[in-house]
Design a protein around this nucleic acid. Structure first.
Lengths: 249, 249
DNA sequence: AGTGTTATTGCAAATATTTGCAAAATAATA
DNA sequence: TATTATTTTGCAAATATTTGCAATAACACT
């Protein structure tokens, strides 16, 4: 069996199941665990899926579209998007970077809202094709295939001349002590710049990301203006995040 | 058994199985692996399949299209892409804008070529995910949904600091009197800028676009460096385009 | 903190590819 | 038909890729 064949099978399985585990794949494809992992890495580098602990999940951008019609959308996303949309007002300039959550929120923006969305995520830009009233500005720069965003000094330079009202920051981990952090250095720098040029910053985090610690810190928790989770703001988990400066939604 | 016969068999098998291995083929055709391998290489050069470690898989683009019944367009793309690739050399900076033809050419760039592709077309940027050695730079600016490209003064401004070796210009019409023209004003301005910052400009046109006249002129025919069509350069239709300055491929 | 699971890394064996070369087959020419 | 040029083919040595394994590190869950 050819490597490409295997990878095709992986993508197909991912298309239907939205997630796969390395162990399962190893058996289905009857190759070693290592080979499957290497396949997953290759596919991730091409931006075709997202590697996670123990397996892989469908690339949000690719998998979201179909899921819309099927109603299997993660309820966590729905809850988060609802809260997020409360912050989006008419005629505002919204800055959004990469990440599943942002993509989903962007799709949920009401069709009649006239906002400008600035993003370094081409998928998000294209998804907003369905919103005739939303003006989309794509940030240029080196295209980082793995995360499917533009990145680098050019992207940062572009931000120099932009001022946004609200920044939706995608994040990989959040904790009181370590603040907000992600896995990629260059991207962390970019996010800092994005905060700088935005009047307010909000981050939408999935439950699993709370109290984790990724490698590159973007900012302190208290630098945020809003924190959105799928949890009730009074939830026990969010207790440490109660803070005068940051509004927890 | 003639070489052409073998290659026909390979393509047929590929049509049904979507993949072939060199070992299988060697046995079926009862020739050495080397011959089969050379056949595969030839077929890949023609854009009829994709060579992979240990065999070959059906070319994604081609296997997709026939189902839509557009067999003729295919060969036109293949012919054009082949000619276009002759112009793409290692370590060059290639500028490509929107359009189907450019998209297809980008996909056909050899995997081992180390080039930088600058584009205002996010789809093209993402398609190059399959090319690990190709660096992709996405031009920022207002995202124009209809044509799925970035556009506007920001995009033009970005080009101010870029110098490309070769510009693949997508075009809607070409004629001797009216030159090269497209349907959208802003885009025509952008294309002019792109020409300006590129050492050489090439345009690849489908037969149907020859001698048509769209609204907004980009440049004269003689401003081009290369013209690529699916036709033979000596074809009657191309006779008026014979010119000392422009090389017709 | 402890335990089982998953990741990473380096390594070596197996498998594929590339390249140059010479023999064989084919085509072209006188 | 004989002869020469061109292409095609198969082989072998040198490279490169892929694969599975094992040791170690990182992680997640109780």
């Amino acid at each position: 069996m050819l490597k490409e064949e295997r990878q095709q099978v992986i993508l197909e399985k991912l298309g239907t199941d939205k997630k796969v585990t390395l162990v399962d794949l190893g058996q289905i494809l009857s190759v070693s665990y290592d080979s499957v992992r290497r396949d997953i890495i290759e596919l991730e580098d091409k931006g075709l899926l997202k590697k996670v602990h123990g397996g892989a999940i469908a690339n949000s951008y690719l998998s979201m579209k179909p899921s819309r019609g099927l109603g299997i959308v993660n309820t966590e996303f729905v809850t988060i998007a609802k809260k997020a949309l409360r912050l989006i007002e008419n005629n505002k300039i919204i800055l959004m970077d990469g990440g599943t959550t942002n993509f989903y929120i962007a799709e949920q923006i009401p069709k009649n809202l006239e906002v400008t969305v600035i993003t370094n995520n081409p998928h998000l830009a294209m998804a907003l094709g369905e919103h005739p009233k939303v003006e989309v500005i794509l940030l240029g720069g080196s295209f980082y295939k793995r995360y499917q965003i533009t990145l680098g000094s050019k992207t940062i330079q572009d931000l120099e001349y932009i001022h946004a009202d609200l920044y939706f920051m995608g994040i990989n981990s959040i904790s009181i002590e370590s603040g907000l952090a992600i896995r990629h250095y260059e991207e962390s720098i970019l996010k800092q710049k994005m905060m700088e040029i935005s009047r307010k910053t909000v981050t939408c985090v999935l439950e699993e990301k709370i109290n984790r610690k990724e490698n590159y810190k973007v900012c302190n928790f208290t630098d945020l203006d809003y924190l959105i989770t799928s949890l009730n703001p009074t939830d026990e988990i969010l207790k440490p995040f109660k803070n005068k400066r940051v509004e927890v939604l």
